[in-house]
Amino acid sequence: MSTTAPPARRKDLLDIESLTREEIVFLLDTARPFKDLFDRSVKKVPALRGKTVLNLFFEPSTRTRASFEIAAKRLSADVTNLAITQSSVTKGESILDTVDTMQSMKVDYMVVRHAAAGVPAFIARHTPAAVINAGDGNHAHPTQALLDAFTMREAVGELAGRRILLVGDLLHSRVFRSVSTVARKLDMEVGIFAPTTLIPSGRPDYMQAFNTFNEALEWSPDFVYLLRLQRERQAAHFFPSLREYHHVFGLTRERFLECRRRGIRIMHPGPVNRGVELVDEVLTYEHCLINRQVENGIAARMAVLYWLQPAVTPLPDEKEEVAS
């Protein structure tokens, strides 16, 4: 438990990159007592009573949306879900039109997911509501990274010096970007193992790349983090076949047994493609953290909602735009 003063509140959470180490640690420390609430007879606290949280999803999601919804409701906020389908866009409504409409409903928090990177940041500049990025294109998924860091801390304690191996489609993965960033900010060592076609070109120096899964396991990671394979990538010829992918980059039975022998924790952001990223028996392994990641997502998102502070008045640049 830290004794330092809590960091000043922010209006938005758009990525992990802009958070300080102190802010990350504060959010992880705050998520802990939120998780303890789940064992109480009343699982709600009144911290966000009278506030409205809007889940604004331009890209389909069931799990993340449900997680945010439960988090907001346990803080006593009112929640509205809005899934903007392709058809709404073809009706000619721009993102800003949608945000303006929502703003007139006086929402206090907006949880935004969009297939294009940067949309949550764009919306944040145009609304006094606190904006949380729930995944934007290949860019960021900060609450996923926070819940993963929380889960890792819960499993092993202090994370500095611990090793995480990220496996899979790094190129298209906002989870990869956010998780590797949170790991670096918490002084973890980051290893990667991926098809060469799916490694981003500007890979930072602090990541250690491996050529085979066995070589990566020899590095003795504390955590193996399997990224979800987007099946549509196969059509784009980033790799030959799902079978081939599993054979080279998946947690096969043989590799799983090696992980179990070494006591390595297994993580995955879900939903799992069984038989592709991992074999079924991983899910019943004692050090498989995948279900805990889901449970901890609620506590981590509660901590974020508790910390952020919506702006009181319309933002200054909004007025300028009206004036110009």
Partner: peptide
């Protein structure tokens, strides 16, 4: 008892209280 989450003035606080849990 940690009453931070039950305070009636959370809106106005520039710094949010740490939660130690009850």
């Amino acid at each position: 008892l940690d009453i931070a989450l039950y305070r009636d003035d959370l809106d106005n606080l520039g710094t949010i209280p740490s939660i130690r849990g009850s």
